[in-house]
Amino acid sequence: MSLPHLADPAGRYRTMRLIRSFEELALEWVRSGLVVGGTHPYSGQEAVAVGVCAALDPADQLTSTHRGHGHVLAKGADPGRLLAELLGRVGGLNGGRGGSMHAADFSLGILGANGIVGAGAPIAVGAAWAAQRRGEPTVVASFFGDGALNQGVLLESLNLASIWRAPVVFVCENNGYATTLPAASAVGGSACGRAAAFGIPAETVDGMDVEAVRAAAGRAVERARSGGGPSFLECLTYRFEAHHTMERRFRLSYRAAEEVASWRERDPLATDLPEAAAIDLEVAELLAAAAGFALASAEPDPATATDHLYASGLRPRSGAAL
């Protein structure tokens, strides 16, 4: 059974709109100082998260990245709890312990956004290996950007997944830039060429087209679930915003305005769905309620700062003078 909220085009549009509006609100909250630190906005890449998750079952899992809000929401996490997490409140997905870059909801198979580029891939391979060992039908989608293509551990992970025939779908979101470094000048060979070198079926797909992503992801998930091993998708996409919210202050000019504009013309949210306007209203209401929940959630008690440091309950020594 696929994820019910992504079962039809309207549901997929609704979730993409939710992600976009969520990111716009998050940006506003960063600018106003409500969110400390910052975020890595997913705007522009919605079709990738939604298209891939539309091919997953509820029991399937994913690993995410520093630019993770889209994946987390697409898999079905509660937007109010994700907003509360950005605010560092106790009602957040992680109780305010993780923030934007570590959002996780294990009850939904979201094994965590990750602050280290490429770090989610081997975790996904191990999670898939464990599920496979137990005879569970779980497939694990591992999202990463074009920057991760040059991380050694990603290449090691492709190899491990290949030799184990692990049920993993590697999803490379190629948004053209590793922060400011263009993929064209950073990636020797190609994304799909890396996968092919390890014997993993790979295809490049239009990452601005949710239905194209869903179709390709569907083939990959089917292959994984039927014992055919891992697949690799390179989704060509673009982030409409800065790499992270701090970048706005620096007024960087590594991307030409024309380039940004041309990709914005291919906005994945452009739709001729007749119900789009109604969905937009619905999402606005949903997000307003989510914001209300997040803002009403309590600040954590400083006395709990080392809670959860150890799963076994070990308490660390205090840093204060004796």
């Binding site: 975790i123 191990g126 898939a128 290996w129 551990v153 491990l160």
Partner: peptide, 12 residues
Amino acid sequence: AFTSAGIGAALN
């Protein structure tokens, strides 16, 4: 990779 795969397996 295999150390992190151990983490992923542990999470599952």
